[in-house]
Amino acid sequence: MIRLRNVVKTYRQGRAAVPALQGVSLDVAEGAFVSVMGASGSGKSTMLHLIGGLDVPDSGSISVGGQQLGRLSDDELTLFRRRKIGFVFQFFNLLPTLTAEENVALPLLLDGKSLHEARPRVESLLERVGLGARRCHKPDELSGGEMQRVAIARALVVDPLLVLADEPTGNLDSKTGEEILHLMKETAEQARQTVVMVTHDARAAAYGERIVTLKDGRVVGDLCGEEGERP
């Protein structure tokens, strides 16, 4: 499903070059739930962004669902993100001017569907994440957990191949965080979606069936199957 080969990414901060990934290679099977762990600055978010096509590597290759991302133009990459990938962010990143329903529908609306066409799918997803009654509320009228549920619904609305979650519980209390992780795992299993979740919380990481650990831009650990500790 996901295939990274010798991926290198270096950021520039002023005059200094900061290596984020230094030759990462990784394979993720279809339908897998992979947690990526590591300290701040280990390169885990960078890896997620590169897999999601939000950024491009300096060298190396990345393929997702058989599609070599390096060969896509900006517009093709955008369409790829729109139709094949769902994002869940730490700070929810909902648009403050849109209602919950409109936020969830956004990828479909951007793809040319009307809200009327998108509504059945959106409503069913909002029901599934437990927000059926709050679909007309704007983000500033929702709690942190509710906002993240909306974000999960948005990530799932296009029925993506891959869900990428960047610290999805980082901004939530532990109880709400667990609810969110349950929800993510449950929905991904139902739809046989691949999930890559970045976290530095070991309890959250344990939801993954595989835990990849990064340090200084390199993969230093890869625990599979029952080796992963369940809460």
């Binding site: 999601g52 939000l54 900006d74 517009d75 955008t78 369409l79 993100r81 729109r82 139709r83 994002f87 962010f89 990143n93 909902l94 648009l95 403050p96 001017t97 956004l106 990828p107 951007l110 793809d111 948005r154």
Partner: peptide, 16 residues
Amino acid sequence: IREIGVLRAVGATRAQ
């Protein structure tokens, strides 16, 4: 700017 970032992340093209 953040809104634009989110839009781009969830699939809005530069032209949009």
